[in-house]
């Protein structure tokens, strides 16, 4: 009885959230997966659809649009994650060097994070207008004024590297946040360690290379996870910049079209499952790594 009294209040306290998460996160994930494994390819028929196993999951790879959207997603993810990490790290590095009015700069770099991707997208849609030459606006116009006409390009309308351009607003928006993460990481490195390294004859670069960077690894990993899952699910930014066009298609916009335009619930659910799966691939290694670290300490 006393044992029950010990764990029951705690369990009662957390049970609402456990139940809500069980129903509305895992329950719906499961329901989505179940739908993805049926042949319910129109929403008109009220019948629930027959179980077809993984047919939808394999079938979708024969669709050209799917291959394209996956490719786009990969290009976007690579440019966005790498861009935000490098830029965020660089900003944090400069801050850490003891810049004047640091808190002011910090706020300025963090501000973009307070903006929604939609607002960012609307502004960058104009900045990245694809018109060139005389009629250029936005960044192309800026290049024109600076005599850098050769830098003008189609931005997100470029058939091959358009998605790299699409990643620029996202980098702009998230690099401040990554800077904050890294800055906290830098500050977490005890000054004694750096001094010890210097005493041992380490140059300034060596201090970073051998002392600070290794200690930033956990921060880098967190940043990677945060950026990675944002990137794989990206929808709002793409829609705000270019709408539902094939040229900037990503899995999330494809899913939207499949559900609301093609009225094909099973296909939408299949794409949704793939998006979850891709995020899981990103996150699970991190969780395992975290758990291991927890065990070790």
């Amino acid at each position: 009885m006393t044992r029950v009294r010990r764990w029951l209040p705690g369990l009662l306290l957390v049970s609402p959230s456990i139940i809500l998460i069980a129903v509305f996160v895992y329950g719906l994930l499961g329901w989505n997966l179940k739908l993805a494994m049926t042949d319910k390819h129109n929403e008109i028929a009220e019948i629930p659809g027959r179980f077809v196993g993984l047919e939808n999951f394999t079938g979708i790879w024969s669709e050209e649009r799917w291959g394209l959207s996956v490719r786009h997603s990969i290009v976007f993810t690579v440019v966005f994650v790498a861009g935000a990490l490098v830029l965020g790290w660089l900003l944090a590095f400069l801050m850490e060097k003891g810049i004047r009015a640091e808190s002011g700069f910090r706020a300025v770099y963090l501000f973009p994070m307070a903006i929604s991707f939609i607002a960012t997208g609307v502004v960058w849609r104009w900045l990245m207008n694809s018109a060139t030459g005389e009629h250029a606006v936005g960044l192309n116009r800026l290049f024109h004024y600076m005599g850098l006409d050769f830098l003008q390009w189609q931005w997100f309308r470029d058939p091959d590297w358009g998605m790299a351009a699409m990643a620029i607003p996202a980098v702009w928006q998230m690099s401040g946040y990554i800077m904050a993460l890294f800055l906290a990481g830098f500050r977490g490195v005890p000054e004694e360690l750096r001094e010890a390294a210097r005493v041992d004859g380490c140059g300034e670069w060596g201090v970073y290379r051998h002392v600070v960077l290794p200690m930033l690894r956990p921060v880098t990993l967190s940043a990677l996870i945060i950026l990675g899952h944002i990137s794989l699910k990206v929808f709002d930014l793409v829609v705000a910049v270019s709408g539902k066009q094939i040229i900037t298609d990503v899995p999330a916009t494809f899913m939207w079209t499949a559900v609301y335009d093609s009225h094909d619930p099973a296909k939408g659910a299949t794409i949704a499952s793939y998006i979850v799966l891709s995020v899981v691939i990103f996150v699970v290694p991190y969780l395992i790594w975290n758990a291991r670290k927890g065990n070790r300490s």
Binding site: E64, T257, D261, S262, H263
Partner: peptide, 14 residues
């Protein structure tokens, strides 16, 4: 219908 139109739109986009 919507399904057909969407398929045409996709084809034109590609």
């Amino acid at each position: 219908n919507d399904t057909w139109r969407t398929a045409i739109t996709d084809a034109v986009g590609l």
